[in-house]
């Protein structure tokens, strides 16, 4: 059920992130304006909206790759400013649109996240993301796009995150690889890891979303369960969530 506590968009149930009056952007001219929202601690929350609207800007705030210009963000009830950024980022993993591959093999890449990772644990996370064990000694630069993205998910999972932030992680993948990564997202959500997933692909949104936030021109225009936003009175919101397609 969609609720409004003051001006804060929220849904029922516990939340992981609380944003209050957040203004943000890479320069003094903000992209994101006056965003107040509680992001649920369970399931997949999809942030949808046109390109350049501020979805990625919002995502980068959540693991402090950037700080807001003004406003307050808290994680587990504590302001992000009070968290050690390295500790926060190990709990709040981030998957990028273009998977950042480090030099060396898949094993070398996994070791960046967890230097003392055992072979058993490394093979376990590879299996978790449906990567064959023999890939562990392959040069990471030789992986296909889908394999590279899944390797990045495996790498992020080695930090045992509570939340995974995903910034259009399938935008550069073909259909088969896209579905594999989506399946992986569902599997992660089912295992108790909350996901915040950015996309402007409405089909994907409808396949994945438990909750949806629409971000247009830097403002959070709607937030709630997918079913509720599908019946929104605002035609822009209905279009952004792919209702009636």
């Amino acid at each position: 059920m969609v609720e409004r506590r003051g001006t804060v968009a929220t849904v029922s149930g516990p939340s992981v992130f609380e944003l209050r009056d957040v203004v943000a952007g890479p320069t003094a001219d903000p992209i994101l304006r006056d965003v107040s929202v509680s992001i649920p601690a369970e399931g997949i929350t999809v942030l949808a909206g046109p390109s350049g609207g501020g979805k990625s800007t919002l995502l980068r705030l959540l693991n402090r790759l950037d700080d807001p210009i003004s406003g307050e963000i808290s994680w587990k009830g504590t302001s992000l400013d009070e968290w050690d950024p390295t500790e926060l980022r190990r709990q709040v993993a981030m998957i990028f649109q273009q998977p950042p591959l480090f030099e060396g093999t898949v094993r070398d890449n996994l070791c960046v996240a967890s230097p003392d990772v055992s072979d058993d644990r490394a093979l376990h996370v590879l299996d978790h993301v449906d990567l064959a064990p023999e890939l562990i000694d392959r040069d990471a630069s030789l992986l296909s796009g889908g394999e590279a993205q899944r390797m990045c998910v495996a790498r992020a999972l080695l930090t045992d995150p509570d939340v995974v932030l995903a910034d259009e992680p399938t935008a550069a993948l073909d259909t088969a690889a896209r579905h594999t990564v989506e399946d992986l997202a569902r599997k992660l959500a089912a295992s108790g890891v909350a996901l915040v997933w950015v996309t402007h692909d409405t089909d994907q949104l409808r396949r994945l979303a438990d909750h949806v936030g629409t971000v247009v021109d830097g403002r959070l225009t709607a937030f709630g369960h997918l079913e509720e936003l599908s019946e929104s009175a605002d035609p822009t919101v209905r279009r952004l969530v792919g209702a009636g397609q």
């Binding site: 790759l65 390295t86 980022r89 993993a93 990028f96 998977p99 950042p100 591959l101 480090f102 790498r155």
Partner: peptide, 13 residues
């Protein structure tokens, strides 16, 4: 930048 932020996002200093 992408690679450096990739490492930061994993919790590296």
């Amino acid at each position: 930048r992408r690679v450096i932020e990739g490492r930061l996002a994993l919790g590296l200093t």
